[in-house]
Amino acid sequence: MKKFRKIYININSICNCKCVNCILSEDSRKMHDELSIDEINNLVDSIPQITDNQHYNIAEVSGGEPTLHKHFIEIVKILQSAKTKGHLHKIALLTNGLTASNKAFCSDISQYIDDVVITLYDTNPINHDWFTNVSGSFVDKIAAIDNFLECGVNVHIKLLVIRPSYQRLPEIAEFINQKWGNKVHVAINGTHYTGDAHRNNDVLFIKNQNAKPYIEKALDILIMNKTIVSVFFPLCILDPIYWQYSPRGFKDVIDASLSISPKYKIGKADRLLDEFIHRNDVCESCLLVERCNWPWKRYCEILDEQEIIEAKNNMYKNIIN
């Protein structure tokens, strides 16, 4: 069976939102870095030389807001061509959904992509638009999700565990159930406090333990509705009945992945480990290490390791032979 490998393709840094929790800094978004068509052609051509046929290659196109790249359609056509040649197996787009609220544009790009990932911050429009700093972004995002579904694209809705909305996760789950039934995949993710998210951590940071009951309630609501869910969160915090919804560990995914960006061009994605992973003995020595998605690096810098030490100790007390 082939293992899957992600190829993160970061095509630009410009964005039409100014999310308070953006993992990039405002300075890096202002740099307006982008990959040119020639660079993308060359980098995509080099994929078969540096990969092998043991992997199932999933391209994830992101930015900034990737659809704002002036050659976005050409870029996804290049990727589609690589897919036709068998170098890529699936093309996913990470977007804030604002441009895809336009039905004609969404229909155009949907020919070339298989999956789309959209983050929903809240289902209260005012609360949601507070995150993005763009009035009307909630309405646009909902329209984009409807448009993508209508075009037959697989939709992944990402929910973030973050202070202004973590208590509303169950309500957000109810909203998703009512609006889209189980036609979407929902992933509940811990937050990376890098970039603007780190700069604004005084208003965004929430302890994992405080979020736990709301995450578990949201999962209950979605699972009850037979919605496919994933949870990307330290396992020692969550009750074991939810562990089966945890994807493989981040380290495992990254080890097999490639990263393409204006700054780094193409290379192994393992540099992301240094950027995101908090290397600590508590997690390294845990029996769940390969499956768990760890507390993120900046999380432990803000809070220290005590929460994870206690959570791990409590988890070990419940293990039976």
Binding site: I23, K90, K158, H185
Partner: peptide, 16 residues
């Protein structure tokens, strides 16, 4: 979720 979704949307390394 992996069988159908191959962890798309689940990686916190997702940019932007």
């Amino acid at each position: 979720a992996k069988e159908n979704y191959e962890c798309i949307g689940c990686s916190n390394s997702d940019y932007g």
